[in-house]
Design a protein around this nucleic acid. Structure first.
Length: 361
DNA sequence: GAAACGTGGAA
DNA sequence: TTTCCAAGTTT
């Protein structure tokens, strides 16, 4: 199915196109395996435009693998704030520490070693090793899944994990000996800019002459992908518990959504008619002296698999000094910007802030 | 193999 | 508004 002619044409056309049209991205400035690694983790399920400012700020803050390894986790999470999938940051931090401990600070260069690091799967292994170490490995991401589907007119469901393995073998067959890193990036770049999910611009595609999907007229039908379930709606309460100076935050559970992140006290699965009951139960359990509570407002936040319908409540309390010292979850409101908060909690903060502003005027 | 895991931008 | 999805990995 892939003859010698096609392979050569694919390699030459794609590589030539890439060298002419590649975007100037910050992580392409050098081949430091650490920087390539950071960029690949950030890029997981995340757009290039979103990543660029995070990457620049992250590398500025942690210029070397060693400096990242020595940083506090809170600091690393703060640098990741708003990027999402926070386990990526925790895994990267843990993995970098392991590289220092086990490999003397040098990013390992074998597939076995590097893929054993936390957060480094099949794709990232291929990406780092091909780009930074010039090794002939496939790096199959969502772009490549789509490009390969069309290029060879394949109807495999790209949502299935087995398809990725099959496509890795195919990529390996067209990967050139000489620039596997450039070729992998070219495949992704093509998918991101030409062979796009909808309305691919086949007219200017460097692979049009060898694209079976195009020849079959299937460029708009491929790839085949099973539809995702829509996020499940959940009524949620956020509690803004304060004495005007201090605010009560909670550390979220180690497992699950926003694991280990600081956030407002959050109560899930509360139907509207039971909000009052749930809040009073919470205050009772926490043994907080409160004077009043009011509804600040409502908003929604959609995760990949959950759709939170949030009601934000403000609870005025009196906090004695003993209580503030007894646990470490009371924070000065003015210190909030120094704590890493997921977007959903930042939205609540903004809501409160805008309300406070409007009241002053 | 399916589900969990964040967020924002575009169709 | 809804749906899709963007350089995936882990459980």
């Amino acid at each position: 199915m892939i003859n010698e002619n096609n392979r050569k044409t694919i390699q030459q056309n794609l590589l030539m196109w890439y060298r002419e049209h590649q975007r100037d991205l910050p992580w392409r400035r050098d081949k430091d395996p650490y920087k390539i690694w950071v960029s690949e983790i950030m890029l997981q399920q995340t757009r290039v435009d979103t990543v660029i400012p995070y990457y620049n700020q992250f590398i500025k803050k942690f210029p070397s693998l060693h400096q990242l390894a020595q940083a506090d986790e809170e600091e690393v999470i703060k640098a990741w704030e708003g990027l999402g999938y926070y386990s990526r940051a925790r895994n990267l931090h843990a993995a970098v520490k392991e590289v220092v401990a086990k490999y003397g600070g040098k990013v390992p260069s074998t597939p076995e070693e590097i893929s054993s690091l936390k957060g480094v799967g099949s794709y990232t292994t291929g990406a780092i090793l091909s780009i930074a170490y010039n090794q002939k490995l496939a790096a199959v991401d969502g772009n490549v899944l789509r490009v390969i589907s069309r290029l060879f007119s394949l109807t495999d469901d790209i949502a299935k994990s087995t398809t990725r393995k099959k496509f890795e073998k195919i990529v390996l067959r067209i990967l050139p000996d000489h620039s596997p890193g450039d070729f992998n990036q070219a495949l992704m770049e093509l998918g991101a800019t030409i062979c796009t999910p909808t309305s691919p611009t086949c007219l200017i595609c460097p692979l049009r002459e060898v694209c079976k999907g195009f020849a079959d007229g299937l460029q708009d039908e491929l790839p085949i992908k099973k539809k995702l379930k829509s996020p499940k709606k959940v009524p949620v309460i956020f509690l803004w518990i304060t004495d005007g100076e201090y605010l009560l935050l909670e550390k979220r559970k180690k497992q699950g959504l926003l694991a280990g992140m600081w956030g407002l006290p959050t109560i899930e699965h509360v139907p509207k008619d039971k909000i009052k009951d749930e809040v009073e139960k919470y205050i009772m359990v926490k043994n907080i002296e409160h004077s009043s509570f009011e509804t600040i407002g409502s908003f929604e936040h959609i995760f990949s698999h959950r759709h939170w319908q949030i009601t934000l409540l403000r609870i005025s309390v009196h906090i004695n000094e003993q209580e503030k010292k007894r646990n470490d979850t009371w924070f000065r409101v003015q210190d909030l910007p120094q704590i890493a908060l997921a977007r959903v909690y930042q939205k609540a903060y903004q809501l409160i802030s805008s309300l406070a502003d409007s009241r002053k005027m």
